[in-house]
Simulated assay, not measured.
Amino acid sequence: MKIAFSPCPNDTFIFHAWVHGLVPDAPQLEVTYADIDVTNQIASMAGVDAPDILKISYAALPWVQSDYALLPCGGALGRGCGPLVLTNSSLNRSNGDAGRVSGAAALSGRRVAVPSERSTAYLLFRLWAAQQVPGGVGEIVVMPFHEIMPAVRDGLVDAGLVIHEARFTYHTYGLHLLQDLGSWWEADTGLPIPLGAIIARRSLDVHAIADWIRTSVEYAWAHPEVSRDYVMSLAQELSPEVAQAHIDLYVNEFSANLGEDGYAAVHALLSRAAEAGLVPKVDLAALRW
């Protein structure tokens, strides 16, 4: 069975047991490690060679729902784990007669780097900016995730949208936090933040796949030390401390079961985005099975 997920510590921690044959009766996995922007593109193609199971952005789900089912476990959804908008200064600036402009308003007309145009992070950013940035931002520049913080630091862009381990490392680039989009989302909706989804081909036994993933998650929690070498071998030069902080933040109760709050968060994100014309309208009822 083919699967594609990122080399990030939360994904490798979750899937370690299944990848290494520690989940009873589960088929052997053929793994492709790829950043989520790549898996979003792979899923949208849905060809015969596309993986059976993928980790994608919830924002990409509307484009693949006809071919892939959302699984209720294994993804990234939680509280206090949202994307960040970073700058290399307070971004205060002179605004003529209006005086000094700071905070979200300072992004008006500015150049912002994002890691993908079909990521949940970018979708949250667009929903937030429409509500908070007068006149909207200026140019959006798509660049690889690892290039964004250096670009902000060096003044190549005015601000950057970052995810995952950047939450723990952005201060080492001398950057400033302009907005935690997760905090905004939670305050605005009262719901957790839906980031990454696990999907499987509808033609497969999605119930069995969900059971195998949940077993892999539970094994990881019961034996955290067993996956350590595997996680660190793919952790892209993260320190063990940052990798563990990453796991602690993104692997949580929703990793085992989306539950009512999890599905409500997904419904809220995709329905708001569809109403704003940012994604195709989805069959929200069909997200559950």
Rank of each mutant, 00 (worst) to 15 (best):
T12I: 12
A245Y: 02
N92L: 05
T32Y: 15
H246F: 04
L123Q: 15
A129Q: 14
Q236K: 12
H207T: 07
R118F: 08
P9N: 10
R202H: 07
L191M: 03
E275K: 04
R288P: 05
I140A: 12
A26Q: 14
I53K: 01
V251H: 03
S90P: 04
S102E: 09
D211Q: 12
W185I: 02
D25E: 12
I163F: 01
K2W: 14
R228A: 11
N10E: 15
K55M: 01
A286E: 02
T172M: 13
A4I: 10
F15T: 09
E225D: 13
A50T: 14
L258K: 01
H267M: 06
L91S: 14
L124E: 15
N252Q: 07
E117Y: 12
N40S: 10
A4E: 07
V206L: 07
A130D: 13
S57P: 11
D188F: 12
Q179D: 13
N257Y: 08
G47D: 04
R93W: 05
L127D: 09
L249H: 05
G259S: 05
G138P: 09
A130R: 15
R111C: 05
A276M: 14
D248V: 09
A222Y: 06
A166C: 07
A210N: 05
P62D: 02
F145N: 08
P150I: 05
P192T: 09
P134H: 03
M232L: 06
V64G: 00
I213P: 01
A256P: 05
E237A: 04
S216Q: 11
D97F: 08
A166M: 10
I36L: 14
G135Y: 06
S233Q: 11
S102P: 12
V48Y: 03
I213R: 00
S119N: 13
A166N: 04
V64D: 00
R126Y: 09
D283Q: 07
V101D: 04
A265C: 10
P240T: 07
W221M: 04
L195R: 03
I163R: 00
A46R: 03
G47S: 02
P9M: 09
V157E: 03
L77P: 05
A166P: 07
Y250F: 06
I193V: 10
I213G: 01
I36F: 11
L124A: 12
L107Y: 07
D158C: 03
D261P: 10
A76D: 10
I247R: 00
V142I: 08
D211P: 12
P280I: 08
P72K: 04
W128K: 08
G155R: 05
D52N: 10
V85M: 06
A159W: 08
D11H: 13
I53E: 01
V226R: 00
G277V: 11
P24W: 13
S108F: 15
A17H: 14
